[in-house]
């Protein structure tokens, strides 16, 4: 069965998409790790007042 040429073989698209999601998880973990250094440098640290939201998410 094919709807607009889309057959069941297209299920294999889940594999690279799965890879994408794994990579996204890793990226997010890395971003989380980098928040350890957020707004703490001598150059940019003073710009955020205590109680303000951080400068980047």
């Amino acid at each position: 069965m094919a709807i607009f040429g889309i057959t069941t073989r297209y299920v294999w698209f889940a594999v690279p998409i799965g890879g994408y999601l794994v990579g996204k998880y890793l990226d997010d973990q890395e971003t989380l790790r980098m928040t350890n250094f957020r707004d703490k440098s001598m150059l940019y640290g003073g710009k955020v007042k205590p109680g303000d939201p951080p400068s980047w998410p």
Partner: peptide, 22 residues
Amino acid sequence: MKFLMMMIFMIPLCFMKNMFWM
């Protein structure tokens, strides 16, 4: 890393039959 993993996950698919256009 997203796109790198996407490409790495494509490698096993290369060795399947009739996956050329896919």
